[in-house]
Simulated scan of single mutants.
Amino acid sequence: MADEGLEEWLRERMPPRGLRPKSAAVVDVLVSQPRQASFGSTSDLARLAGVNVATVTRTAQALGFAGWPALQQELRARYLSSLSAPQVAEEHHSAGSPASASLRRDLDSLALVNRRFDEDEIRAVAEAVAAARRTTVIADGSYAAVGIAFAHNARLAGYDVHAVTAGDAELANATAKLTADDVLVAISFWRLYESTVRAANEAHDRGARVFAISDAASPALAGAAERVLMVPAEGSPSFRR
């Protein structure tokens, strides 16, 4: 079944001149069969689209990714974000202990981060935080701990960084104080909260520098952010991110 949000995201990434018929067939599979595309291999996707593996790779590159693994990682994050918590748990159901499944998933994610690591991207965010009068980190839900750890470690290093995780009222008050001398870091994994998008856009309108850390570059959030740092955050069902 097609997902309208997923289809819109893919269409927005297409090159101005469009895609060749075989690559268009690959995109059609991504839209119509997101579950199979999110968890299947390159050869599985090629078979569903009626093309060869090389065409799958070229399609991913035409959409702005280094290759199929990078596209699949973001596709899966978007697919899982459209599901309920029980549905996500069912998608991750596997044999073996929850502990070993979680460790395997974390090792896979770390390997992906290592392959995609861009020192210039990290340095740009660090330099912005270091130069800012004040940095506000917003994070909600199950990943609020990421924002708290970010702010805590930055304060230990001597920077004025504070995390906002306590709801809309505190977030609105913190955002209202931002100026062009400040930085806002929006952290969003799995579920994208509307309040996070509103805060990022408000900070941008006030002249603050905005950065996002996410596992899926949502257009709603990326539009306000100067840079989006992509970090895989998919966990096993027993240790949901």
Rank of each mutant, 00 (worst) to 15 (best):
M14D: 03
G40I: 04
R198S: 11
A217E: 13
S214F: 11
V29R: 11
L45T: 00
G64T: 05
V51E: 04
G50V: 08
V29S: 06
P98F: 14
V164G: 04
P86Q: 10
S81Y: 01
D215P: 04
A132H: 08
E121V: 13
F65L: 05
R47L: 10
A163S: 14
K177N: 07
T165D: 09
A25C: 04
S43E: 15
R13T: 01
A145S: 09
Q33T: 03
T136K: 04
A101W: 08
R105T: 05
E234N: 04
W68P: 07
R115K: 12
L19P: 01
T165R: 09
P98V: 10
I187T: 06
Q72M: 10
W68R: 10
G40Y: 07
I148M: 11
A70Y: 09
A169C: 02
H162M: 05
K177C: 04
A169Y: 13
D108Q: 13
S218C: 00
R104S: 14
A217L: 04
A225K: 06
A85I: 09
R155Q: 14
A203L: 05
Y79K: 07
A49P: 08
Q36K: 09
A124V: 05
V113F: 04
G158V: 04
A60W: 06
V129H: 05
S84H: 09
W190G: 01
S195N: 03
A89Y: 02
A111D: 08
Y159K: 11
G67M: 02
R123Q: 11
V210I: 13
R105K: 14
F189Q: 09
T135F: 03
E170C: 08
R58L: 09
D215T: 02
Q61Y: 01
R209W: 02
D120Y: 00
T59Y: 02
R198K: 14
V146W: 05
A200Q: 11
V51G: 02
M230G: 03
D118F: 00
L229H: 14
Y159N: 03
V185G: 10
L107Q: 10
L45F: 02
V197D: 11
R191N: 12
I138H: 12
Q61R: 15
G223T: 05
T165S: 08
L156H: 08
G235P: 04
A186I: 01
E91V: 13
L178N: 07
T136N: 01
G67C: 06
D3Y: 13
G235A: 14
T165G: 00
S214V: 14
D108M: 08
E4S: 15
R133L: 03
A233V: 02
A174T: 08
V27Q: 01
A154L: 13
S84V: 09
P98W: 13
S238E: 15
S102P: 00
T55M: 03
I122L: 12
A172R: 15
A85E: 15
A111H: 06
F150K: 05
A208Q: 10
A37I: 07
V146G: 01
S102T: 13
D182C: 14
A157N: 11
R11Q: 15
F189W: 08
R17V: 00
D182P: 08
M1L: 12
D3K: 03
W9H: 12
L178I: 12
A199S: 13
A85H: 08
A24Q: 15
R20M: 01
F117Q: 08
S94N: 10
S142N: 02
A95V: 09
E234S: 00
A130G: 11
R11Y: 07
A172P: 03
S236T: 02
R227I: 00
D160E: 15
